[in-house]
Design a binder for these strands. Structure first.
Lengths: 68, 68
DNA sequence: TTGTAGACTGCCGTCGACA
DNA sequence: ATGTCGACGGCAGTCTACA
């Protein structure tokens, strides 16, 4: 499986565990909602800064987004 | 410290531990050498795919590039 | 609530060259 | 062996809008 897909699935999983919407995650991370959607679909090659923003918004460490 | 700097220092550290040059890391990762230099200087906001390429080139897991 | 589309700006990543 | 520059194409990330 493609790394973008893996990352997207992992992100969606962590978001749902916290029971927040894409809209809320967008606000917390400072990103826009359609972009979050694209990331979760595995369509986006996100940058280091975005990865860190998402981890912070989820209240986890960056490395946790890369655990299997 | 900025996340780009942190990542760059971590990358340089892992590369030196393996005693390979930026030139060799560039070849192994499929990236170009001046770009590797910029990353290690903390000047570049690298993408997910580049992060994974670098980890593979170093023979480590992606998450290891985010451990403190 | 989520997926998708289009238009836009800025920067990622490439490459050749020089210190 | 490494840092830096300049030029370039392509895509990251934004925003509005509609299903």
């Amino acid at each position: 499986m493609d790394i973008k897909e893996e990352f997207g699935k992992r992100l969606a999983q962590m978001r749902k565990e916290r029971k927040i919407s894409q809209e809320q995650l967008a606000e917390l991370s400072g990103l826009n909602r359609p972009y979050i959607s694209g990331i979760e679909q595995g369509k986006r090659n996100v940058s280091l800064e975005v990865i860190v923003s998402l981890a912070k918004a989820l209240g986890i460490k960056t490395k946790e987004l890369f655990e299997e």
